[in-house]
């Protein structure tokens, strides 16, 4: 068919060429993005990979020379100071992310279920959704400053309030406690993102064929059964999406720890992204370690994402398939 068309085109020569060839406009329209992407993203990524195999520190581009996989060896070896810093930051990040994500998914799921349950018919749904989503619209910097001011020492709203209520006699240095500092960061991550997750899950639930719920109703399912037998199994792809995006965001966590605690107390809230940033723009500006750590982080995220896909893949029984399709 295509060939025929081309032949026809050639035959009719003149008449055909006067037609505008729209397809090239497509290239024009995507060109700005492609150019910006190649210059600012692709090149940076390639250069980062390159740096990670060199000894580049502190902008000394003229002294840059390849060192093979030395940087990777150093970072992956927890007995070196840089390596131990990297793995400590990695475990901090993981702890903070897990503590934030588990409740985030559970509460978002619960809220999504309530908002979509046709039996509950919650009033002022729109208002609630806006309120729940609101924290996501505030910048991390604002939130960090707000909470720093709330919990600072010795004179701050929380310290004063707790003392006046008689819960304690002395002001407490909240930010010197490891579990409090990590907990607060997890809480802020949760608070900023559970609304977003909820909206995604609501969209997922609304995407499920209503016939299935009606059939459930007819068969006498209660709300719980509908949730566990219909909603949850069919929501799996959306939950996988939420899990993977949240994991990527969580492992790259930077703004709140940087602005709220600066890694204190004693580096307990130092995240991988912060570690990379500090390697690159602090001390002797170890661009080589920062680049190698970025690449390692990329592979960790890649492997963890693949694992998630593997464990959450559809391994349906016959019944599941029948319901799902």
């Amino acid at each position: 068919m295509v060939q025929q068309h081309a032949i026809k085109q050639r035959k009719h020569g003149k008449a055909m060429t006067s037609k505008v060839n729209y397809s090239r406009y497509g290239y024009f329209f995507v060109a700005p993005f492609i150019i910006a992407f190649v210059v600012f993203t692709l090149y940076s990524i390639i250069f980062t990979v390159q740096i990670s195999f060199t000894n580049l520190t502190n902008w000394r581009l003229d002294e840059m020379s390849p060192v093979g996989i030395e940087n990777y060896k150093l970072l992956l070896d927890p007995s070196t100071p840089v390596g131990s810093g990297f793995w400590a930051a990695f475990s901090n990040t993981l702890i903070i992310w897990v503590v934030n994500f588990v409740p985030q998914l559970l509460i978002a799921l619960l809220l999504a279920q309530w908002f979509t349950d046709s039996r509950l018919r919650i009033r002022f749904q729109g208002g609630f959704k806006v309120l729940i989503f609101m924290p996501n619209t505030i910048t991390a910097a604002t939130i960090a400053i707000l909470f720093y001011a709330l919990f600072t020492y010795p004179i701050a709203p929380v310290n004063t309030l707790l003392q006046q209520l008689g819960f304690m006699h002395q002001p407490v240095q909240f930010f010197r406690s490891v579990s409090f500092s990590r907990g607060l960061i997890s809480f802020l991550q949760w608070w900023m993102w559970y609304g977003n997750t909820m909206i995604v899950l609501i969209a997922g639930i609304l995407g499920i064929n209503p016939d299935l719920f009606e059939a459930g109703l007819v068969d006498g399912c209660n709300s719980r059964q509908m949730f566990t037998k219909i909603t949850l199994p069919l929501l799996r792809p959306i939950m996988l999406y939420t899990l993977v995006t949240s994991m990527i965001g969580g492992l790259q966590m930077f703004d709140i720890p940087q602005l709220l605690t600066q890694g204190d107390p004693q580096g307990a809230t130092n995240t991988v992204a912060r570690f990379i940033y500090r390697q690159a723009f602090f001390g002797s500006y170890n661009f080589n370690y920062a680049a190698a750590a970025s690449i390692i982080l990329f592979f960790i995220i890649l492997v963890m994402s693949l694992l998630l896909f593997y464990f959450m893949r559809e391994r349906g029984t016959k019944l599941d398939r029948r319901v799902g399709k």
Binding site: P81, G85, G267, G283
Partner: peptide, 26 residues
């Protein structure tokens, strides 16, 4: 700060500081 707050002994604090210096300056 950790020493002041009784989180570490002096030697430990100094050692931690040295580790951080090693991490920051190659």
């Amino acid at each position: 700060t950790p020493y002041l707050n009784g989180e570490v002994e002096m030697d430990e604090g100094i050692a931690n500081f040295k580790t951080e210096v090693k991490t920051a300056y190659s």
